[in-house]
Every structure is written in structure tokens, then in C-alpha cells.
Design a protein around this nucleic acid. Structure first.
Lengths: 259, 259
DNA sequence: GTGCTCAATTTGTCGGACATATTCCAAGTC
DNA sequence: GACTTGGAATATGTCCGACAAATTGAGCAC
């Protein structure tokens, strides 16, 4: 895959809080440090006394931040030995914070983007099918709002990404499967990255209107047609990584994903 | 779905640590309390001073435990207002701890089991296809070890579940997609529950030999045949919820899942 | 009833002290 | 010399007490 993908700006709304609490902002800062590779797998992070001396932060606040990250499987602490970063495979790679840190740090690793995209390609088509079967009227309103936002957004990155994320979140909500909904952060990150890549120099003759593609999925869900919804969502996913010239950006092994 | 599913004993190895650290064991205890429904969504959990008075635990250890759970999205704290349980949809439902707590508590909600199973059904077939394309020699040894353990296990629940989980973990590892691997806890829990249900009164004429079914998938992966691996894994997943009489335990909406 | 002030309460942070576990080194033993 | 043993050094784990900050809610003025 081109390394372009990992340097492309993202900028979708990550609802970053003002961060009033210290232990929270320390966890946030340290999380970014770790995610961005400052501390590699197995590396020790600053000793409590060192950190305390350098920053003036109290030991308690620092320790609470460490526990936050430990809960995500990012750290292991051993008495006397220190606190070390766990191998990335053991993290909660779909944890909203981990996703946010990774993408806000500017350059998430290519393997991570690709892995999220593959996961999205597995999840969204059947999720759309479930949505077609289980959707409520309230769910449909979510789709209408998202499509409205897509149609009338000012086409800046942020407003588009927010509308796009709302649509895909609506898919997950309508599937009425809370586990799928917990994948939202990872799926929306993959969606934002790939659609940013796909549509960034629209219009061109090789990609259809993104709004209409989404509307088509919506229409099948509204019609309670799971097979159709799945098919259209599969097309949306499969074609997402064609660039502006219609060539494949990276090969997802389509024979294994196409239905 | 029958509520039998949620009362069926599980007993697969959850590698629960001895838990020497207090903040860890408090987090564990509190996590189970929340997961098992003692504190419902929006409910306040014990105030720090109350908990301190009742248990004799220091405030710091309790707070570190709270941070651990807050990192999983299970709690929100507000000054003066107290600490409350977040709506379950906002948790990391695939976090290894959440999965472990839910299934060790004996009676995970039916919707959770079903949601995990649906997720598994979406992930494992394409994951097997990726495994067929990307497997290394070291990966194949994982499969051989798992199959060996399945063949010669003493058919107690634990040994079977461990061997079964090893096989499915090998699928995820061989897919060489770390994000899929991070779903391991949820997938293995679903696998253990469903296979426990499926095979618990083997042998019967309606289910094939479980070892041979797994071996068939292994054989397609070894042959680097993604289409075949996906097909066999789909069959393994689709049939997993037939009971001993061959009737469907609950309808997964197969038209939307079948390829 | 509305809006304001102020006190009570609960979490957030800080500092210091000691407990516990592990590493490391040095002395002792075979 | 290689190994074992024991103690010192050190980093994390826990506890305690105090104060800061923020929100709630009651009481008051209008």
C-alpha cells in the first residue's frame, strides 16, 4: 500500500473533551506518546519519581493515569522492575481512545489502517443486512438526518466526515447489536480514512456520487431488504479503495471478500 | 433464544491471575458487580468514603481501580455528583476483561451471547480466507498443536474448550490482522458457548465430528485455498447453533449471512 | 416564581510515610 | 571457577491526612 494513506489528513470529529482532570490529561498525553511510538513495545515508561520530578505532577495523579492505560492492556507494571509497554497485539486496538490517539497523532501505521479497513469490510455488509431486518422508525430518522447532513454539508473535511460517520453509526445502531456498536470507533476511523482517500478529488468519472451510494443503502434498509442492503453495502466497501483513476490502492484479496 | 444458553456452564480457561495487587482485585470485583447487573446503567457506585469505611481499603487503591474501569468506558465520574455506571452500549464490549467478567459471572445476558455470536459469524469466515492467503509455517504449527489437543483431549469441558479456543485463535493469528486478533476474547467466548451447546450430548447423527470439521478448515488453509477455507468455516459457523435434534436454536437471519 | 448567594458534599489533587516485591551485587561455599 | 545465599538498593504498592475544585441544593431576596 502507498504510504500516502497514512499521511493523509483526517480531521473527523473526535469529540475531544476539554480535559479538566489531570489524571485524564496525563493518560491522554501518555497514550499518545505510546501510540505514536515514542515508547516501543517492551520499553519502560518514566519512573514515577522521575515523572514527578520533571512535571511537578503528584504521584497519585500519575498512577491513576497509568491504571487507565493498564485497563486497556497497554501497560504492565511490576514492582521494582518498572512499568513497561505491552506488545501492541495485546492492546484493545478497537478501544475508542486507542483509535483516537492513533489517528490524531497524524500517522497511524499502515498495517493498522489496513487492519481496520479489513475489519470494516467484514462487518458492515452483514450489519446492513441486520439493520434492514431490525430497524425501527427512530433508526430511520438517524439515516435521514445523516443523509441530509451529507447532502447539504459544506464539503469541508470535518463536516463531511461527521455526516459520513453518522450514517455508518446509524448502520451499527440499526443492527441492534451492541457488540457491533462497540466497534464504531474503529469502523468510523477506517471509513473516514478510506472515503477521504477516495473522494478527495471529486468529481471524477470513476466514482459514483457518494451521497447517492449511501442513499441507495438507506433505501434498501427502509424497504426491509436485507439481501439488497448487504449487496449495496458490499459494493460501497469493495470500491472504497479505488483511487481517482479507478485503480485499486491496495489489494484486499477480493475473492475472499466478494460475495 | 432459549434461556438455556445463558445458564449453560462454560468453564474455558480464562487465565485468571492470582491477583496480588489490591487495586487490581478491587477493579476485578467491582467489574463483576457492574457486569452482573448489581449496579444498573446510570446507577451510582459506592462513594469513596463509604467504600473506604466498609472495606478498610485505602482511598488511593479504590480510586486506581475506578480508573481502570473508567478506561474501559464503564464509569463516568463527576465532582460532587458521584461515580456512575455508563450505559452498556458505550462499554468496550470486546474488552477481554469485560468478556471474562460476563462469562465467569455465570449468566451473561442472552443478547450479549447472541451479539458475540453474530460478530463471530461475520468475522471468522473471511478471517479463515485471509489465513489461507497469509499463513506462515509457524502458524501451521499452531493449528497442528490445536488439532492434536482436540483429538486427544479427555473431553472434559475445560480441555476441549482450551483446544477449541487455540484453534480459533490460530485462525485469527494466521490472518495476520492484529485488529481481528484483538477480538479474540469475544470470539472465543462465543465459540465456547455455542460449541458447548452443540456438542454437549454427542454423538448424534445430526452433527459431524467436531474435530474433523476443524481439520477440514485446517486442510484448506494449509492448501492456501481462501475460497475453500471461507466456505468450510462458514459451514462451521452456520451450523453451530443447531441443537442435538438438528433444529435451529435461534435464527441468525441466515439469508443475510450465507454466502 | 425567578434568580442569586452561600454552605455542604463529593471527587480531584497533593505530600509524605511505610510495605512489599524484585533486582543486583557481594560474600560465602562447593 | 561456578553456584548459592543473603542483604542492600530501588521501584512500585498501599495507606494516611489535608486541602482544592466543582457541583448540588437549600435558603434568601426580589
Amino acid at each position: 500500500m502507498s504510504d500516502k494513506l497514512s499521511t493523509l489528513g483526517l480531521g473527523f470529529d473526535t469529540q475531544a473533551a476539554p480535559e479538566k482532570r489531570k489524571n485524564e490529561s496525563i493518560a491522554d498525553w501518555l497514550g499518545r506518546q505510546i501510540v505514536s511510538g515514542v515508547y516501543a513495545s517492551g520499553d519502560p515508561i518514566p519512573k514515577e519519581m522521575d515523572f514527578l520530578a520533571e512535571t511537578g505532577i503528584s504521584r497519585g495523579a500519575y498512577r491513576e493515569a497509568l491504571r487507565r492505560l493498564a485497563g486497556k492492556g497497554m501497560l504492565v507494571t511490576r514492582t521494582r522492575s518498572g512499568t513497561r509497554v505491552t506488545p501492541r497485539e495485546q492492546w484493545s486496538l478497537l478501544d475508542p481512545d486507542v483509535v483516537r490517539w492513533s489517528f490524531e497523532s497524524g500517522a497511524p501505521p499502515d498495517w493498522y489502517i489496513r487492519a481496520l479497513y479489513e475489519m470494516r469490510a467484514m462487518i458492515e455488509p452483514p450489519a446492513a443486512a441486520f439493520a434492514a431486518e431490525r430497524r425501527s422508525e427512530a433508526d430511520m430518522q438517524l439515516f435521514r438526518d445523516a443523509l441530509h447532513a451529507m447532502r447539504y454539508c459544506d464539503m469541508t473535511e470535518d463536516s463531511w466526515h461527521n455526516a459520513d460517520a453518522s450514517f455508518h453509526r446509524a448502520i451499527l445502531i440499526s443492527s441492534h447489536n451492541p457488540v457491533l456498536l462497540s466497534l464504531e470507533a474503529g469502523i468510523c476511523a477506517a471509513v473516514a480514512y478510506t472515503t477521504a482517500f477516495r473522494y478527495r478529488d471529486m468529481p471524477n468519472p470513476h466514482t459514483r456520487n457518494p451521497v447517492e451510494e449511501h442513499a441507495a443503502v438507506f433505501e434498501r434498509i427502509e424497504a426491509r431488504d436485507p439481501v439488497g442492503a448487504r449487496k449495496l453495502m458490499t459494493e460501497l466497501v469493495d470500491t472504497a479503495l479505488l483511487d481517482s483513476k479507478g485503480t485499486t490502492v491496495f489489494d484486499l484479496g477480493l475473492p475472499t471478500l466478494k460475495v
